[in-house]
């Protein structure tokens, strides 16, 4: 198997690392690039813990080959904060609503929710439920997660209106 240099655009930064054709995106992100916020929980595309955004779309990084992700803009949970450290409204809402217990599903939940809010700034409860249908949380029973996403959406919209 041929090793080669892979080039990735992660959270707005260009990162080079050695990859092999069989390598999964989750392993490259975690093990090669050291971005361990993205979790590996089922490694079979069934739990959503490994969700990252590729060109704004949520993908299971455990099912995605790293080689195929080189021309995409990748976003992980580490990139959610603003450059000055200000938390994204989703992060703030997850804290305030106690939407994370053990926290292992949280990165995936946040990234899936970000993709939703980017595409649909005013989601209904039903929309949130549908968007998160591929993300498993074993701890919270989902109530606080949905509340947090709806609250974040509202805050983002309110901030936009003030700015406009």
């Amino acid at each position: 198997m041929s090793k080669r240099i892979g080039s990735f655009a992660v959270n707005g930064k260009k990162r080079d690392t050695i990859i092999e054709p069989h390598m999964l995106l989750v392993d490259v992100i975690r093990d090669s690039l050291g971005l361990t916020g993205t979790k590996r929980a089922c490694a079979s595309g069934n739990c959503g813990a490994c969700t990252v955004l590729a060109d704004g779309q949520p993908v299971c990084s455990c099912l995605t080959l790293a080689v195929c992700s080189q021309d995409k803009a990748l976003e992980t949970v580490e990139g959610l904060r603003a450059a000055d450290g200000t938390l994204h409204p989703l992060q703030q809402a997850f804290i305030e609503h106690c939407a994370a217990q053990c926290g292992y599903c949280t990165a995936g939940m946040l990234m899936t929710s970000k993709a939703l809010l980017d595409a649909n700034p005013r989601p209904s409860r039903e929309d949130v439920k549908r968007a998160l249908s591929g993300n498993i949380c074993r701890c919270t029973g989902y109530v606080k997660i949905i509340d947090a996403v709806l609250d974040a959406a509202q805050k983002i919209n309110a901030a936009r209106e003030v700015a406009a």
């Binding site: 361990t36 916020g37 992980t76 580490e78 804290i95 949280t106």
Partner: peptide, 12 residues
């Protein structure tokens, strides 16, 4: 909130 919440949501 959970003491680790700020760490949970930032991947830290």
């Amino acid at each position: 909130p959970h003491d680790s919440a700020p760490l949970h949501v930032t991947g830290q």
